[in-house]
Design a protein around this nucleic acid. Structure first.
Lengths: 359, 359
DNA sequence: AGCGGAATTTGAATCGATCCAACAAAAATG
DNA sequence: CATTTTTGTTGGATCGATTCAAATTCCGCT
């Protein structure tokens, strides 16, 4: 009868080989996890039996429950999984996270989902010791979902006002001011802003109310930085078009269309991400507008691609890799404390900015 | 006394809230996993207690043991974790894998390690339902390690002779022939090959013996393809230098140095990866050699970067994304069968190849 | 009040290991 | 030879959930 069922191939458990080898399960366990404490003869016998029965070694599923620690950190976003491999910013960040994980031998679990329900489920059921959250679109929801798990987590990028969550970000105001000052000093007076979202699922020109009620304070801070600095040069910021995109191809191009369809064309574009800046360069050149001849552009982020474009992108560089490293380490050697770190930015002048064209 | 220990914050278990709510753990469990079958009143009470006690929801660690399925696939390589985000080939592949995983809601666990022992441990303890293996350097060891787990797995890229393991690869011979023919037809007669490894940890000019005893049959096949086709044009393949690199910056440049230090300089380079091809373009131009004016180059892989280089790279394009998708699906809907798939390649002519220079 | 059947709830069994106190056997010591 | 030590082994408890057959409760109806 048993032989009839053998085809079912119920996987062999440690207990099975213990019985077959005539030792207790305790000893069998030791053979695999602490071989040095079991007598050589017994050890070999058990190993032989295991081998012969086709035992796959202690199942991590069982071990995990006992051990408690997964030894992996989850990296979550509301974007599809491919975001981690496509998006330049994410990639550099992941490189930093990878480094920290490699150093301690921890693994990385990528968590995401096509839709919201699945995302919730995937976060709830992720086998990880903590999370690093990419808080782009839908970031607040992501934070709420993650908080439920009661595991350590760090929010990345766009700051949350919520001081109770650990976060690592950059000094958005300072960075934005640097960008704006640079352009103003080059003589530019007509600006446009390619903005990240102030709240989820927004796109189009941002009104002052939208800005005021921003969910993403990072976006708000960058804009504030731009405006503060431009004001110092006597520029009326109220007339500057601010177009919210979803930080991808389509909405960014739409934004450029909208901006350049207006009467006064800008001679300088402040983009809140390198991605948008790069798309803008492409868009402008395709329309025969010279960069920086006709229009200057400053990005934000400092992704490697920015150095390779034609012209290479002037940008506000975040220490992306370092942020990733720190975020991972925060989870890896978590001590229960809430930490909020603000990193400095670097201003990188490359070829996408030049003197304002003579009217 | 108990109050003294409360600071220890032993996490709350389902059993705790069951007790507190005065229901059995069975019911408590149902409240979370199948809420519809428990009476509304009870359900709310239990939920309230859970909320109030700060219960994080059913712990996936516990659930996992019972459920058996992790709902995640492991992607493993012998390279450091950052390989997944740095290497263009890996990135495109991961995009394909991501797609398949997104479609079914599965997660991705990245498995790797700085050193061999840790790699073994990480493979043994990865919480996954199966593996996709990037079989670059150290691929055979990776396969051996993985086989131990007795979980489904697929080997990617370099083929293994071992017919007992599932694998997806491309028709290396056909691809290589395409590349060689193209160059031969353009009139090239002096060739050099930038080769992937024939076995682990090799670098330098490859002797016929090395080729004959190749561990990586993919590398061998590509070379065979090149040589077969060139022979048809009456070219003496015995004089063609074949330099094994580690498919990265340093050894590739060393290879180029070595190749161009020889008497007869090649007018055409057959690179077994786009990565090497791209490095070669850079190296040649830095030395004032025109591509394709003085030297033509054909890559292999078809990574997106190849389209962006100056000049854009002529290459043999693998259906990388599709390979990734299929690999992931093979694991996701594994049926116990061993599958070996060979995909076709596309020949993409771009700007890095041109007529052989007039002697 | 009594009955049948549906709706809920219970609690033991299970998933696959590790840990550890207690015990046994062997080796070292006096 | 008796007594410690040392070295190995045992088996029960535990990690945190889910499952399912059996028990119970509920409800409408005669």
């Amino acid at each position: 009868m048993a032989s009839l069922l053998e085809g079912q191939a119920r996987p062999i458990r440690l207990a099975d080989i213990a019985k077959a080898a005539g030792v207790s399960h305790g000893t069998a366990s030791n053979v695999f996890s602490r071989p040095e404490i079991v007598r050589a003869e017994v050890r070999e016998r058990v190993k032989a039996v295991a081998e012969q029965m086709g035992y796959a070694g202690p199942d991590p599923k069982g071990r995990l429950l006992r051990a408690g620690k997964v030894n992996a950190i989850g990296v979550a976003t509301t974007e599809p999984l491919s975001y981690f491999f496509d998006d330049p910013f994410a990639r550099v960040m992941m490189a930093g996270i990878s480094e920290a994980c490699d150093a301690t031998g921890a693994g990385i679990a990528l968590v995401s989902a096509a839709n919201q329900e699945k995302l919730a489920w995937n976060i709830q059921s992720a086998l990880v010791d903590g999370f690093v959250l990419f808080c782009i679109e839908g970031g607040s929801r992501l934070v709420d979902l993650t908080r439920e798990r009661k595991l350590p987590f760090v929010a990345l990028e766009l700051g949350f006002q919520d001081e109770t969550v650990s976060a690592i970000g950059v000094d958005n105001v300072a960075g934005a001011r640097l960008a704006a000052r640079h352009l103003a000093e080059l003589g530019h007076r007509r600006f446009a802003v390619l903005s990240l979202g102030f709240a989820d699922n927004r796109t189009g020109f941002a009104t002052p109310e939208v800005v005021r009620s921003a969910v993403y304070t990072g976006t708000r801070d960058r804009l504030a930085g731009y405006f503060e600095e431009l004001s110092r040069f006597g520029i009326d910021t109220a007339t500057i078009p601010v177009y919210e995109t979803e930080n991808e191809e389509k909405s960014t191009r739409a934004g450029l269309e909208a901006i350049f369809a207006r009467g006064e064309r800008p001679t300088a574009i402040l983009a809140m991400s390198d991605r948008m800046a790069l798309i803008a360069i492409d868009w402008l050149r395709a329309r025969g507008l010279g960069v920086p001849g006709d229009v200057s552009i400053v990005g934000f982020d400092g992704v490697p691609d920015g150095a390779l474009s034609t012209p290479p992108l002037t940008t506000i560089a975040q220490p992306i890799t370092e942020i990733g490293r720190r975020a991972a380490r925060m989870i890896l050697d978590h001590d229960g404390a809430v930490r909020r770190e603000t990193m400095g930015v670097d201003f990188v002048v490359r070829g996408s900015t030049g003197p304002a064209p003579k009217a």
